[in-house]
Nucleic acid binder design. Structure first.
Lengths: 199, 199
DNA sequence: CCATATAGGTACTGACCGGTAACACCCCTG
DNA sequence: CAGGGGTGTTACCGGTCAGTACCTATATGG
């Protein structure tokens, strides 16, 4: 029926639902997407959806859990690509973020967006968001420390906030606004903390 | 009936509706708040609401317009408080933002949050958001230029993204996370661009 | 070949959504 | 006093929300 239903080869419904939900939640917003439309776009129905997820809130939490895991895998790849070279890892991370932020379909960090959409502290997604953001921050701090600059925690938080800002800014001023300068800003900050950015 | 209805002295319904809507939209999110609950909390009813606002979308746009105007007034006061002294204005701005970001009821920038909640480019709120963010950025650029640092546009965008990041980060990691360091980060950036931060 | 598990289909619930129609009211002004 | 604009009240519209009951179809594995 729907576009995505054609990719229904042997992928089990749970995966199809999650894939479709991820796309819709990210592009249109969590509250804007109903479970009916998710089920339909996944080429299944609401009953099957509720057999795999106890509630929409749980589906949202799982959607965010997947993204958090993907982000973590991305960090692992970054580490493996420049083994033992924290400075190179940091530069590669910055470069990737700079590119991601200027993509035209960029709608910011799905986790951060979810935090905006779901202010209720009891929502199951809140724990996922908080833990992931904390985890990312800690990895960044460790990276800055290993890269050998002074005040590594300060540098890490600067880069963290800068990225967070660039991703949200891209949604209001577009990918060609201040967000497009994220890479250069990050390098300037690294330099200011005594980490060379020469390749 | 409701708490806010007690402040119903001589304030016309349009103002009451806007005040209540601002509070609810900001705290709970735009999509999470229905027009019925706004009308009820404003001590009036849906009909009166629709006599003053053609649609919920228009009410949302007006809510954001008010906030944008308030922010502009705040800038004007800042300018008047330190006439002719751009450096002092910049420091005062930074100080205010640092304080705002660590407030416990902080839920970030209402305009930026609205951009997250309303991805539809046709929504009347989008224009308000885009214009306001652009305007704020330009004011910040002018201020950095007047303060006499080198690369004023770069500094302004750095501060801009840092603030945007701090406000969104406060929603995931709380007011005591990286956001609490906004002030010091901003001063470091100013110093890096050759603007003294001594009082 | 049968049993069980998983998936699809349909129809439904009760609540809420944004938005409107019709009518009574009250206060201010002419 | 008459009139009218702004307000309040109630009931309603069609649509959508999250979530469920019940039944059928298919596929897999003993």
């Amino acid at each position: 029926m729907t576009l995505t239903a054609s990719t229904n080869g042997k992928i089990p419904p749970r995966e199809r639902i999650l894939a479709v939900a991820s796309d819709l939640f990210y592009r249109q917003g969590i509250r804007a997407v109903g479970v009916d439309s998710i089920a339909e776009a996944a080429g299944t129905n609401k009953m099957t959806l509720y057999r795999h997820f106890t509630s929409k809130d749980e589906l949202v939490a799982e959607y965010l859990r997947r993204l958090a895991a993907e982000a973590d895998t991305f960090w692992d790849k970054l580490t493996a690509a420049h083994p033992g070279n924290a400075r190179a890892q940091l530069l590669a991370w910055l470069d990737s973020m700079g590119q991601a932020v200027t993509r035209h379909d960029e709608r910011g960090c799905a986790l951060a967006n979810a935090a905006v959409e779901l202010p209720d502290k009891e929502h199951p997604a809140r724990k996922v968001i908080e833990e992931h953001k904390n985890h990312q921050r800690q990895r960044l701090i460790a990276l800055c420390r290993d890269a050998g600059g002074d005040e590594p925690e300060m540098l890490a938080d600067e880069l963290f906030l800068l990225l967070e800002g660039a991703r949200v800014c891209a949604q209001s001023l577009g990918p060609d606004g201040p967000s497009s300068r994220l890479g250069r800003m990050g390098e300037a900050l690294m330099a200011a903390h005594g980490i060379s950015c020469l390749r």
